[in-house]
């Protein structure tokens, strides 16, 4: 078991390095950073000066190794505009995004898992059709549109919730719902299909033959087997929300990671973008590791491998 975790950590570390190289390269391939930074009307000398000031005139490999050495020393670089350490900017923006993503995931799971179980337990019943309807609408409705609808009705027309900003739990309701709706369909369909497969299995027939109550058969016997892929996808969804909440954070004026990334990309603050990508890849790795550990706890067969 210990060696399994160790192996996963080594792989995870390799992935982190690979992601940082790729993101480093992509940023530099997106155009000549110095030219963009210098802006229209800059002379060739200006561009060269800027390139030199930020070390962009050096070979790619040298730039990367330099960056990596600094990262290992704990220095993720400074913003080109505020000269603030990128790490501080990220740490300031992270809590609200974390809160938002975590609540969204919890809300999504609380709705989608029971719904998926109910749908699988009664295939082709009204509840199955209802769950399919929920899944399809969740997939089909764009986040920004749902966000605007909610702002219009809940915020402006009925004045039930504040439409932007932070500070109270009320501020979180709408963004959390919007993000939960976007990840729910997948979790729900996955729960349902996993349950349908599991319910066909011999040990579920055996559980019925034991005279166990349906609740016990569905939740104790079937769900624990069916939930494994849901755990893995939950981790990925959470990572996705942590990095991909740009739309929601922009609409609800939340100063989280998504908003910071958006702002930094717009103004070519490449050290910040680079640091965010590195930070997110790191979080992704932690999340998948956490998912592996949870699955290991749920499924004894993984434990011995």
């Amino acid at each position: 078991m210990g060696s399994y975790v160790l192996k996963r950590m080594i792989v995870a570390f390799a992935v982190a390095v690979a992601v940082s190289i790729i993101s480093f390269a992509l940023l530099r391939m997106s155009g000549d950073l110095a030219t963009i930074l210098a802006g229209d009307g800059a002379t060739a000398e200006d561009v060269a000066a800027i390139a030199h000031a930020h070390g962009l005139d050096r070979p790619f490999a040298v730039q990367y190794v330099d960056w990596l050495v600094n990262v290992l020393k704990g220095d993720l670089g400074k913003s080109l505009f505020t000269a603030e350490p990128t790490m501080d900017m990220i740490l300031a923006a992270a809590p609200v995004t974390f809160q938002l993503s975590l609540y969204s995931l919890i809300l999504a799971l609380v709705v989608s898992v029971p719904l998926g179980v109910a749908a699988a337990a009664n295939p082709n019943s009204w509840i199955d059709r209802f769950s399919l309807f929920v899944a399809v609408s969740g997939k089909a409705i764009p986040s920004f549109w749902l966000a605007l609808l909610m702002i219009y009705w809940l915020g402006v027309q009925w004045r039930l919730l504040p439409i932007s900003g932070a500070g109270s739990w009320k501020n979180l309701v709408m963004p959390v719902v919007v993000m939960a709706v976007s990840v729910m369909p997948q979790l729900m369909r996955l729960t349902r299909s996993g349950m349908l497969d599991t319910l066909e299995s011999q040990y579920i027939r055996m559980a019925w033959a034991k005279g166990l109550a349906p609740r016990t058969v569905f939740f104790k016997h079937a769900l624990r087997n069916a939930i494994l892929p849901v755990v893995s996808v939950s981790a990925i969804s959470l990572g996705f929300m942590l990095g991909g909440s740009v739309v929601v954070e922009t609409i609800f004026a939340i100063n989280g990671i998504g908003a910071l990334a958006y702002k930094s990309i717009i103004r070519i603050d490449f050290p910040v973008v680079q640091a965010i990508l590195f930070f997110l890849s790191f979080i992704y790795i932690l999340l998948t590791l956490a998912a592996d550990l949870i699955n290991m706890w749920l499924d004894p067969r993984i434990r011995v491998k």
Binding site: Q202, Y203, M206, A207, A209, H221, R224, N225, P300, R301
Partner: peptide, 16 residues
């Protein structure tokens, strides 16, 4: 009334 199924490899729940 108890039931014993054919295949013992699949009639026990792997996670319990």
């Amino acid at each position: 009334i108890s039931v014993i199924f054919q295949d013992p490899m699949t009639s026990l729940n792997p996670v319990l």
